[in-house]
Amino acid sequence: MAKSKRLYLYPFWLRIWHHVNAVLMIILIITGLSMQYSNPVYPVIRFDLAVSWHNLAGILLTVSYFIFLIGVLFTSIGRYYVIKTEGLAVSFAKQLRYYLIGVFRGEKNPFQVTEKRKFNPMQLITYNLIMHAITPITFITGWALIYPETIVLNVFGYSGIMLTSLVHTIAGFLISIFLIIHLYVITMGKSTRENLKSIIYGYHETHEGDEEHE
């Protein structure tokens, strides 16, 4: 019989921040795509509305990001984001093997969630990249595009605004790819709904000695 333990890993403020952030990201992706592929005949969202919503969501996302950053810097959740290089490559490879092979064989997840470690090595690297590199790049370039007079006019024969937009679009694209994979990974808990329940109610259930995963 597997022992079950409830860990409170997602405090209330973090859950609210997470859901607000998700809604803002989805608004930004949809309005961004609508602008990038604007079509006078079949507009997904009217261009001027898409611009206004995108700007507003971007401003709110920046505020939301700094709330998250303060939380990471000054509350206990910050420790989950620290990457220890020792043994990282091995544990990363084990986790990758589990996602590519082990999960189909019903093997035990090599990573066990504890009070000190919430993210497996792949999540740790991905979340750090998304939250501390790609998201800041997206909103910094986004703010620069709201105030384009701050952008260098010409960089080696290319418009500075064009290069900024390119970086902004690529970063936005990477976030949208992350979002899709993130949504899928939700289903990879003990049961398909377990991870979703955790981020809604805040508790994570550990199942020591249990090997079977759906």
Binding site: M35, S38, F47
Partner: peptide
């Protein structure tokens, strides 16, 4: 031809 000095969302893909 636009991209050397500007970038127009929707026009430059």
């Amino acid at each position: 031809e636009i991209t050397s000095e500007a970038y127009i969302i929707g026009a430059n893909r």
